[in-house]
């Protein structure tokens, strides 16, 4: 029964911890903008929490720099189970355009596992809100119903990617890159 309660509470009010891994601030301000009156992520119970120990969702922005790598792992370890990671911004997906710099290791998933990718440079607040909601949909049936409703109302193609979709896309990319290389 307690487990059910915890799951219900988590789905109703996920606490988000924002972690800047070397971002340019573009996505960071869009995350804050998503919590503002216009987009108001807080109406879904999302709360921005300072301490990773109290958070359910780790929202990372930017590529992982060599300096921050160990700190990212440490912060990730501090988040209580079950934990979710949302990589916000194209940098968080692949490290571009800073990759391959001498101090940049690439996307966030090169260091910690990622549960939802929100690409964009910077990612739009509505895409961030949709990504968080989609993540909630896996926990809470009501959030899932909301996601379905959003999908029926507007085109959500390319707004967010799940890890399996991202893997598929990368595979397709590599194949096409291989074909281009073979042609030239």
């Amino acid at each position: 029964m307690l487990n059910g309660l915890v799951k219900w509470a988590r789905g109703k009010s996920p606490w988000v911890c924002h972690l800047n891994c070397g971002s340019c601030n573009g996505c960071d301000i869009e995350i804050v903008a998503a919590l503002m009156p216009r987009f108001d992520l807080e109406r879904f119970g999302v709360l921005l929490e300072g301490s990773p120990r109290h958070a359910d969702v780790l929202m990372t922005t930017g590529p992982v720099t060599r300096q921050i790598r160990d700190r990212v792992i440490r912060v990730y370890d501090q988040v209580a189970e079950p934990k979710f990671v949302v990589a916000v911004g194209t940098c968080g997906v692949s490290g571009a355009p800073f990759y391959p710099g001498y101090n940049v290791l690439g996307g966030v998933d090169s260091v910690i596992p990622v549960d939802m990718y929100v690409p964009g440079c910077p990612a739009r607040p509505d895409a961030i809100a949709y990504g968080v909601l989609k993540l909630l949909g896996t926990l809470d049936p009501k959030a899932d119903a909301l996601v379905k409703e959003i999908e029926s109302r507007r085109d959500t193609t390319g707004l967010v990617y799940t890890p399996s979709e991202m893997a598929e896309m990368r595979q397709a990319n590599e194949t096409s890159l291989g074909q281009t290389a073979a042609r030239s």
């Binding site: 070397g22 590529p63 720099t65 300096q67 921050i68 700190r71 800073f98 710099g101 101090n103 940049v104």
Partner: peptide
Amino acid sequence: IGYVHRSIERS
């Protein structure tokens, strides 16, 4: 500082 150093000038 230096946690957000992304080697821009060199790139």
